[in-house]
Amino acid sequence: MSEPKSIGVALFGAGRIGTIHAGNLARHPHASLRYVVDVHAPAAQSLAAVHGAQVATVEQALADASIGAVVIGSSTDTHADLIQRAAAAGKAIFCEKPVDLEVERARACAEAVRRAGVVCMIGFQRRFDPTFAALKQRLDAGEIGTPEMLVVTSRDPGPPPASYIARSGGVFKDMLIHDFDIFRWILGGEAVSVHATGGCPGMPEVAAAGDISHAAVTLRTRAGSLCQINTSRRAAYGYDQRFEVLGSKGLLQAGNVRPTEVVAWGEQAISCDKPEAFFLERYRAAYALEIEHFFDALVHGTPVRTTIEDGIKALELAELATRSWREGKALECAV
């Protein structure tokens, strides 16, 4: 059997995540990065030069029949437009979360994808993290019986600039959208209620930008399983990403990743490395694995694990959590 041909790729976005995706595309045997598209020309030129690609406009990239897939890592406000245009051009789509900041626009994207009949995968890379995926596999194997409670800790080492926070869609859509996806993935059910609360202890600049820096969310599934998510835009000790699942027969924990696993034992204390600095380091393996999965799915015709419907479901929960926080009460989910 002959080796499958490589798939021509156009990458939208030459920033931090675009750079990560470009490197992973360059290493994948079935992907051929041909175009880099970014409104900031120097960034596009620099990244394209590293990988032997060309700089192009959106129109040029989508008009090229040799392009079979697009990878969207540009700013959130471009996602919906690029998804719809790529779908209309018949390209397979990998898009970073969120689909959009507005649920109705995200649903319009899903309809465009459905009409075009193209593959569309949303970048919920945490499902591909080796530790998280191993926990899920053991959970599905019945190791701890029926899952009853999920506790998620998700904290950034420091807040982004106030200018970013003001246009981010808020902490629930910007940060917790990943955790809402984890909730659906791990517990395997949909929420029937959401209760969110939060504030800005010691971070008035976040409040001035119209957002909160700390949040706690409780979700309940139809089966009665509970999920508690706690998040903060500031953790002085590093990027804190972990969760645990309590089941009828035990507990499974997925902890942080550290630069090394060396532990120093001394007279005064036992010490180890702090967690990885931020998301690019923490999820380095996950980003590579999700791109590998996307192109393997295209080559072999298998379904992708994180669909645009998953993106919409997570966004709906983020929207409901935002409303719950603002209204100060628990809200029921539409069924």
Rank of each mutant, 00 (worst) to 15 (best):
residue 121 M to F: 14
residue 118 V to L: 10
residue 210 G to T: 10
residue 136 K to C: 00
residue 176 L to V: 12
residue 163 S to H: 04
residue 119 V to I: 13
residue 191 A to H: 03
residue 130 P to M: 04
residue 136 K to G: 01
residue 192 V to C: 04
residue 217 V to M: 12
residue 137 Q to E: 15
residue 195 H to D: 07
residue 219 L to H: 02
residue 159 P to L: 06
residue 161 P to R: 08
residue 157 P to W: 03
residue 180 F to V: 09
residue 117 G to P: 04
residue 173 K to Y: 12
residue 169 G to T: 07
residue 220 R to G: 01
residue 163 S to R: 14
residue 185 W to R: 01
residue 169 G to C: 07
residue 162 A to L: 04
residue 174 D to C: 13
residue 173 K to M: 02
residue 172 F to K: 07
residue 182 I to T: 14
residue 190 E to S: 10
residue 212 I to A: 05
residue 193 S to L: 06
residue 120 C to H: 13
residue 161 P to E: 14
residue 223 A to H: 06
residue 181 D to H: 14
residue 210 G to C: 13
residue 130 P to H: 04
residue 210 G to M: 11
residue 166 A to V: 09
residue 205 E to V: 00
residue 174 D to F: 15
residue 186 I to M: 08
residue 124 F to W: 04
residue 145 G to E: 05
residue 177 I to K: 09
residue 212 I to H: 10
residue 157 P to H: 02
residue 185 W to Q: 00
residue 197 T to K: 13
residue 199 G to T: 14
residue 129 D to M: 09
residue 167 R to C: 06
residue 164 Y to I: 07
residue 159 P to K: 11
residue 200 C to R: 06
residue 184 R to L: 14
residue 221 T to D: 02
residue 136 K to Y: 05
residue 156 D to F: 13
residue 219 L to N: 08
residue 145 G to M: 02
residue 191 A to T: 00
residue 158 G to N: 06
residue 183 F to N: 03
residue 214 H to V: 15
residue 137 Q to A: 14
residue 183 F to R: 04
residue 122 I to S: 05
residue 183 F to D: 08
residue 141 A to W: 01
residue 141 A to H: 00
residue 181 D to P: 02
residue 121 M to C: 14
residue 207 A to I: 12
residue 129 D to Q: 06
residue 131 T to W: 03
residue 172 F to D: 06
residue 204 P to L: 05
residue 142 G to Q: 04
residue 177 I to C: 02
residue 139 L to S: 03
residue 168 S to C: 13
residue 173 K to E: 01
residue 188 G to E: 04
residue 202 G to W: 12
residue 157 P to R: 05
residue 211 D to R: 08
residue 153 T to I: 07
residue 138 R to F: 00
residue 206 V to M: 09
residue 123 G to S: 09
residue 221 T to F: 01
residue 213 S to R: 07
residue 161 P to V: 12
residue 155 R to Q: 13
residue 144 I to F: 04
residue 124 F to N: 00
residue 215 A to F: 06
residue 180 F to L: 08
residue 168 S to G: 09
residue 119 V to P: 05
residue 214 H to D: 14
residue 180 F to A: 05
residue 124 F to S: 03
residue 152 V to N: 07
residue 171 V to Q: 10
residue 206 V to L: 02
residue 182 I to P: 00
residue 116 A to W: 08
